[in-house]
């Protein structure tokens, strides 16, 4: 087992954890957290794939793509948060219509 494999498997587990949160939690701030966890899990998989050669530092191309991804994830999170705050202001709820009674926050 190598370091790269450990973190890639960690990334795969994080995709699962994020997906579980996304399905079971109705509160939209939780879904934003879950979305970010799925995203960073995928980054770890990509980074793990770029470090399998056992070199001192991983392949720079996936590294650059991941840095781009982290920045794009932040801009999407900011937009999602702005939409959520507006939804709460207009409806008083932080869940999508039809989901508020049956599911967890």
């Amino acid at each position: 087992m190598s370091t790269a494999l450990v973190y890639a498997l960690c990334g795969a587990s994080l995709v699962g954890v994020g997906l579980y949160g996304f399905i079971t939690r109705a509160h939209l701030l939780r879904r934003i957290l879950a979305f970010n966890i799925i995203g960073s899990g995928i980054f770890l998989l990509l980074g793990g794939a770029g470090s399998r050669q056992g070199a001192v530092s991983p392949d720079p191309v996936p590294q650059a793509v991941i840095i781009t991804g982290i920045v794009v994830a932040l801009s999407l999170t900011a937009l999602a948060v702005a939409l959520l705050v507006r939804l709460v202001e207009d409806t008083g709820r932080a869940t999508l219509p039809g989901e508020d009674a049956s599911r967890d926050a």
């Binding site: 980054f43 980074g47 530092s57 590294q63 650059a64 991941i66 840095i67 982290i70 920045v71």
Partner: peptide, 9 residues
């Protein structure tokens, strides 16, 4: 993983 640039970001 040795990806210092990514760690910073």
């Amino acid at each position: 993983l040795g990806a210092v640039d990514v760690a910073l970001a």
